[in-house]
Simulated scan of single mutants.
Amino acid sequence: MELFRHPAFIRYWAARVTGGAANQVLLLAIGWHMYQLTGSAWDLGMVGLLQFAPSIAVALPSGHLADRVNRLRIVQVCQAAHAAAALIMAVATLRGWISPALLYGVSILLGTVRPFQMAASTAIIPALVPTELLPRATAFAAAGFQASTIAGPAIGGLLFVAGLDVVYATCAGVFTVATLLLFGVRYEHVPPPREPVTMQSLLAGLSFIGANKVLLGAVTLDLFAVLLGGATALLPIYAQDILHVGPEGLGMLRAAPAMGALVVAVALARKPLARHVGRKLMVSVAAFGVFIVVFGVSRNFWLSMAALAASGAADMVSVVVRQTLVQLETPDAMRGRVAAVSSLFIGASNQLGEFESGATAALMGPVASVVVGGVGTVLVAAAWAKLFKGLAGRDRFA
């Protein structure tokens, strides 16, 4: 593959995969730990909310920083912060200091760090490969992320047998390895001209997306579709109370969407989408909603696994199309700020979606929450196809 001729990208990819696996285990452990302590769907939803809420305050500054300083250094600091958070959890669990309040506090820390890492890590990829390879690089990066999403929960489910203190300590060690791997990445960072930080410069990414209907449609589609259709926060409830498969089964359920996504990501890295990318985006989002409905009503573990895997496959088409469009339509001087706004929407769809799932599950039960959310995702795809005809009718990336 042509990407392997660019060693800086491959080293960076390896660091992201390593850190991504540790992050998946850490998030899985925090959710499981909270449910074991409280048995409350509401508290599971609050974990997701607190991982999102700080991003509202720091999203715009994180994008501005990513356009002003070395993006690689930002990612290194963020990985080190994740290692520190995991170490705190390991010590607290071992010493018996663990509590819902501490889990909330660590969730806030992770939510604060995430926008800085997302803005810098997304914006740096175009500097590591030629423009013509960007669709392949985007798909390959997504494949690595999905591989870590598979390996992380699977390994985490096995580590649960040894105790949550071991899980957290392992995460801290893996985050440290990822941080060290980043020191092997080299790329040419050209400092931009010095200019004062103003409200206009902070809001530049938001203004750029708002003026570009294709980008606006792409990022808001992800926001509302995954906000409604996400079921990740409720997986501990499904594993324990509905499918009766315990923590080992929880790890498999958490990994299932990534299994389907990985297959599609590898295929797209080998043969990128060439035509009708807008139409494929809309169809993939609608399909995601359908598969979430199937998961919601299933009482069979393997059917649930298949539905989640299929939802991950559909979602990967959407991810690659959206991220490629954002990168190709944004000048490098703006990529950090645009990526920060995009990451805010992604965070809203994921973390805020977890809160929405937990809150609706507390009101109407987990099954109804998942089914209603999946139906809502299908309706969003249909609405966006009408509202953003330029996006839905987009033929090629360039």
Rank of each mutant, 00 (worst) to 15 (best):
R186D: 06
A359C: 00
G312S: 05
P193H: 06
E188P: 01
F288Y: 15
V106G: 04
G353V: 10
L250R: 02
A137H: 09
W13T: 12
F4S: 12
T122S: 15
A21N: 03
R322T: 14
E248P: 00
G373A: 00
W302M: 08
Q36D: 11
F355Q: 08
A137G: 09
T330P: 07
M118C: 00
A120G: 11
L102K: 08
P130G: 05
H276C: 00
E195W: 01
D43C: 00
D332W: 06
S107L: 05
A381V: 06
E356K: 15
P153F: 01
L262Q: 12
L273Q: 09
L134N: 07
V297R: 07
S121N: 07
R136N: 08
F4R: 15
A154P: 07
T170W: 13
P100C: 00
V161P: 01
G296F: 03
I88Q: 04
L308Q: 10
W97I: 08
L227W: 10
G249E: 06
T93A: 14
V263P: 07
R95N: 08
I237F: 01
R254Y: 00
F355D: 09
L344I: 04
V77T: 12
V294M: 04
G347C: 04
A85E: 14
M199W: 15
L72Y: 10
A66W: 12
S369W: 01
F397L: 02
A59P: 11
F224D: 12
L250A: 03
V380Q: 11
I88H: 02
S40W: 08
G260C: 03
T377Q: 10
A204Q: 14
V197T: 14
Q200R: 15
G289I: 06
S284F: 11
A120T: 10
A147R: 01
H189G: 06
F388W: 07
L103Y: 06
